[in-house]
Amino acid sequence: MSKSTHREPVQAAQSAVEDDHASGLTRRTVLAGVAATTAVVTVGVDTPAVAQRANPDSDMETFEQLSEALTGIARKKLAPDTDSIGIKHDYFKWINEREPAAFVSLLKIAKDNANSSQAMIEKLQATDDTKFLARSIVLMWYLGSWYAPGDLKKLVDSRSAPKPVFIPHTVISPKAYAQGWVWRVAQAHPMGYSDMQFGYWNREPAPLDDFIIRTKVRGT
């Protein structure tokens, strides 16, 4: 794990904050998924009185649904049935160790609103705990890095400050770095790592759907 001073993730995070001013949900495109947690809605949420931990066995499916709603990326792409990467396990564990109470709350909202991504997104913004954790999760999937919810909140609170606030963040793991969805959304690959075919630079990129949506064999 390494601390990064790379500007791109910071800018992405800041863009998420700027979208706070958006008038509605922006989950129309995948890139907009980064901002999908930002609409200002005030809906009451019951927060467990006692801090609990999420259970990776029983709560993983809900985490997948939540992640799909937040990122706009097909669930079967984030977590395929035959998942050789298993990054969802790493992310689940990471959140559970750092934000256990808010994570439980977030998963409850996701479970209670499993039939409507929009309702899920609206309700998770009722409290800062779930709202900013949701943003952290979006950034986690897209950038493979952890931006702590508290730091994201500070960014919002300081947006009238004369200088942008630096948001500390941690690359979760080498695996997470290579799995950041931002690269696939851009039909590209992270620096220093590529699953693309030798010579790919000489051809048009594959369609965006191949990166983020298509889960079946072409032609079937």
Partner: peptide, 12 residues
């Protein structure tokens, strides 16, 4: 392991 490309299109 990724089926969208694994058998594309050899099994059709």
């Amino acid at each position: 392991s990724a089926f969208p490309c694994t058998a594309d299109p050899s099994l059709l």
